[in-house]
């Protein structure tokens, strides 16, 4: 990845993180931890990979994206707003009674959202359906999806995994946001889903371990590699930090579904602004 691109992506990711904090703050509810965690994957997908057209959100040949961990809607909304699917100023209406920006993504209301999600485990199955349609119709679009590591506890994820491998859906690339945390604590304490990479391998997937799920170049390389694989879907198991980018939210599961107060919001925005200023200097 060239330097200019790398710098641009970092700036974009930081802007997305700021929007996440502002959305959750203005809504007084929502999920900052997991949103900050998957921001860099979304950044690479929408700003360095996916074939989409904000002027034609329903374009039949577009690449598709399904946020299987739908509670991270703030990250998706911020990403597609920066991409041009919706006005940035609408983000502050997140979760409000007259807003179209529901707490969990709705494809009926939001241009650029390809699937309604929020119930964990279902999104990845819908991504399998989209990829299967691509094969049926001989289209060259690709399908992407992000799952939570806690989400892997849903049996349905493994039903989807089986189906994707069975139908050789090499047009499907999924990501596990491997941040080690869910609502009630560490994933290994609540209900251990390990070994994650080996499980997907056993289910017939090509598996790529992304050692740093916040390194744009490493994420991009995994996506490129996946495109070369024939006859198998790819799972990128991305080591991520829940709350990434806001020091006091990092690796703390109490920020899973808690909104910052004014002081916390100011501190978070100041940190992100400082980082952004450093990038722009």
């Amino acid at each position: 990845m060239d330097k200019q691109k790398a710098l641009e992506l970092k700036k974009t990711a930081t802007r997305i993180r700021k929007h996440i904090i502002e959305q959750v703050f203005s809504a007084k509810s929502g999920h900052p931890g997991g949103s900050l965690s998957c921001t860099d994957i979304l950044t690479v997908l929408y700003f360095d990979e996916m074939r989409v057209n904000p002027k034609d959100p329903r374009w039949a040949d577009r690449d598709r994206f399904v946020l299987s961990k739908g509670h991270c809607a703030p990250a998706l909304y911020a990403t597609i707003a920066l991409k041009g699917f919706l006005p940035e100023e609408d983000l502050k209406t997140f979760r409000k009674i007259d807003s179209y920006l529901e707490g969990h993504p709705s494809m009926s209301y939001v241009p650029g959202v390809d699937m309604s999600t929020g119930s964990l485990g279902q999104g990845i199955s819908t991504a399998v359906g989209m990829a299967l349609a691509g094969k049926i119709d001989n289209k060259d679009y690709r399908v992407y999806s992000i799952l939570g590591d806690g989400e892997l506890q849903e049996g349905q994820v493994w039903e989807a995994a089986m189906a994707a491998a069975h139908y050789k859906l090499d047009n499907l690339t999924a990501f596990v946001d491997y941040n080690g945390l869910q609502i009630d604590g560490n994933i290994t304490d609540v209900m251990n889903p390990e070994p994650i990479a080996d499980k997907f391998k056993a289910f017939g997937w090509n598996v790529i371990v992304v050692e740093d799920g916040h390194d744009h170049a490493e994420i991009k390389a995994a996506i490129e590699k996946a495109k070369t694989v024939k006859g198998q879907p790819t799972m990128c198991v991305c080591h991520c930090i829940k709350g990434k980018g806001v020091s006091f939210m990092e690796n703390d599961y109490s920020w899973h579904g808690t909104a910052p107060n004014q002081e916390q919001r100011d501190k978070a925005i100041a940190e992100l602004d400082e980082y952004l200023a450093g990038l722009e200097a």
């Binding site: 506890q153 849903e154 049996g155 869910q182 609502i183 009630d184 609540v190 209900m191 889903p193």
Partner: peptide, 25 residues
Amino acid sequence: DLSKSTKTDTFRQVYPERHFNMGIA
């Protein structure tokens, strides 16, 4: 994985040996 929201956490504090988190499943 919702014990603080469903409030079964209140039971767990008294009888941890009879509370089981089944994960998101």
